[in-house]
């Protein structure tokens, strides 16, 4: 197994070390922690509490007639978890999967109190940030843009901008296209 599975605790430890170095970002009352990852030279973040684990890419069982960004389902200790390629989801050029391709497994609470687990294929894990609430900005009004719905917030970390993902929206899969009568 080439898994580089990391537990939540590990990530948190990392973040503690990080806080030591970056005094300006030190955690105070109104701050949250985010795990960020890279895609196409952009940095995206998700709430660290929603991250279940990070694992290496392994072939998934293909789901018939699923949208092409759904790579299939994997067995996560007995639970069937769908894996979504975030590049394809956002309409970016897809990349070859290799030994360093990473799957971020997140658990998302939906509005109806349901919880769903999903794996996100990303280019690479970037960092863990602790960010104060005032450093978060609402997404700019780009509603006509196709991917705007996936953006929850923007946040500034030093000079970089990180896009916080709206995970519940990522959970909405388009209905599989029904096959018409076989020819």
């Amino acid at each position: 197994m080439t898994d580089i599975a990391t537990t939540e605790e590990d990530i948190k430890e990392q973040s503690v070390e990080y806080d030591h170095e970056e005094h300006e970002l030190e955690a105070t009352g109104e701050s949250r922690q985010f795990l960020t990852f890279m895609m196409d030279d952009e940095e995206y973040g998700v709430d660290i509490l929603s991250v279940q684990e990070i694992r290496g890419w392994e072939p998934a069982t293909v789901l018939p007639n699923a949208p092409d960004y759904v790579k299939g389902v994997i067995n996560l200790r007995g639970t069937i978890v769908p894996v979504v390629d975030l590049r394809q989801r956002f309409g970016l050029d897809s990349m070859e999967y290799g030994a360093i391709t990473v799957v971020v497994v997140v658990k998302v609470s939906l509005e109806n109190n349901d919880e769903k687990i999903i794996g996100l294929v990303v280019d690479a894990i970037s960092d863990v940030y602790t960010v104060k609430a005032e450093n978060m900005r609402p997404a700019p009004d780009i509603t006509e843009h196709a991917n705007a719905e996936f953006i929850e917030n923007l946040m500034n970390v030093e000079k970089n901008m990180v896009v916080l993902l709206n995970l519940p929206r990522l959970m909405e899969f388009s209905q599989s296209s029904a096959v018409q009568a076989t020819s």
């Binding site: 789901l63 018939p64 389902v73 069937i80 899969f173």
Partner: peptide
């Protein structure tokens, strides 16, 4: 039988999934 709908959604023509002896998922 494991549910696909728990984390995904219904798939036409598939009633569920299971995990085979080698750990792979099968529909």
């Amino acid at each position: 039988i494991k549910s696909l709908e728990n984390n995904y959604q219904r798939i036409e023509g598939i009633s569920g999934a299971t995990i085979l002896g080698d750990g792979r998922v099968s529909l």
